[in-house]
Amino acid sequence: MGIDWGIIIQQFFSQGVGINAMVFAMAAIGLNIHFGYTGLLNFGHVGFMAAGAYGVGMTVFWLDQSLWLGVLVGLLLPTIMALILGIPTLRLRADYLGITTIAASEALRIFVRWRGNQERTGSSGGINDFADEFFEFNIFTRPGTETYDFAPGGLTIFQFRANDLWVLLIGWTLVAFFLLLTWQLMRSPWGRALKSIREDEDAARALGKNAYAYKLQALVLGGVIGGVAGMLQVISRQAVQPDTFNPVITFLIWTILIIGGVGKVASPVAGSMIYWALISGLITFMRELIGTDLSDELETFLNLSVLNVDQLRFVIFGGALMLLMWFRPQGVFGNREEMALEDR
């Protein structure tokens, strides 16, 4: 048994622009508004994604309404969540928001998977097959076509199912829209005021800026974008599962943002593509490696087997988060001098 390089290459490219890359790029755009431009320590971003996801899912499943109304609810719930979290904590020191948001995102997950919520959220089983309305409009649906392949010279680089392609089209379009929005906002005087709060809240207040109001606006805006990412994620899977919204996902978004470089407009997209391409290629490579004659040695010396190879992805991105924050907080492409300014 040898290593199938073809599947590794295909995973590298397909995942690099795939649904995960799109969803996490969008979520990271929201986090960039929070942390990158306003300096808010949002450690519960996954909670905003969950609020969006359950907003759309519950509207269909529990209230038996249309998916499109659900999308509106999915925009509303993250807004409410941002207000509930922000109003008590944004007057306080930055780390209090961090503690509150991580706790709230976990509490939200506990609540939706509570068995008492069976008929509302589907409890731990979640909500399934609720997004048919979205796929009715799929322009890629063709009888007999399962997947779309892009394989120049026989080497498959991209391979997507028709439904995924439809999600990708809508998703990346929205990502482009949010990038444009961020760019426009951040070059307006509003964005300037936001950045001044990130730099020094007291100075902003002395200059007459209502820091509290700006922070609340930024929290809502970024939270809603996170909510849209959550909606797209569950629509693409046709499933809302409470355990998808594990707190660790928040920090994957942080890692992605830092890979791209905090506080730059396009960094969420760059970071997400890089992360998903590399990690998918790497994990696929390791799976292939386990399939070879080396499997016994891997298990003996590294305890590595098909059972736990996927867990390595968390170890790797956790390690990447540590090392990037320590050695390259400016991101993979950022220039060091700019970051050094901060310390003066």
């Binding site: 929005l181 426009q184 906002l185 307006s188 005087p189 509003w190 964005g191 300037r192 005021a193 950045k195 001044s196 730099e199 020094d200 100075a203 902003a204 200059l207 007459g208 800026k209 606006q217 805006l221 700019e338 300014l341 901060e342 003066r344």
Partner: peptide, 26 residues
């Protein structure tokens, strides 16, 4: 405001700017 330009620092000083409202910023 260290990571902002001197000019941006100055512009921030002016009060009552319409563009500083989210609703007008775009």
């Amino acid at each position: 405001l260290a990571k902002m330009s001197v000019m941006d620092n100055m512009l921030l000083g002016a009060g009552d700017q319409r563009g500083e409202k989210l609703s007008f910023s775009l």
